[in-house]
């Protein structure tokens, strides 16, 4: 449980959370924001695995993608609410 929370926190304060949010804020299309967040999640996991698929842990990849999707979607919602034009 603690490991799960730690992984989620690490991703939320890492690339999927922050860059995912920033990229999500660049579009009004929810699916695009979520997709960009998910992509950052995949890239981040591969980056920390030394770009070797064999070193990627399925759970870590899944959490990074989910956090990325959430962050990208949140960024997109911020754009929709916060931009007038």
């Amino acid at each position: 449980m603690l490991e799960l929370l730690g992984t989620i926190g690490g991703n939320a304060l890492g690339l999927p959370g922050i860059l995912g949010l920033a990229l999500g804020m660049m579009t009004r299309r929810l699916w695009l924001g979520a997709a960009m967040g998910a992509l950052i999640g995949v890239i981040e996991t591969l980056l920390f695995a030394g770009w070797q698929i064999a070193h990627v842990e399925a759970l870590e990849l899944m959490i990074a993608v989910v956090v990325g999707i959430c962050a990208g979607s949140l960024g997109c919602l911020i754009r929709r609410i916060g931009a007038t034009a």
């Binding site: 603690l2 490991e3 926190g9």
Partner: peptide, 15 residues
């Protein structure tokens, strides 16, 4: 040292 792993370790250290 790596940011992602560091944050994970810090959160887990709450225990």
């Amino acid at each position: 040292h790596e940011w992602n792993h560091k944050i994970k370790a810090k959160i887990m250290a709450v225990k």
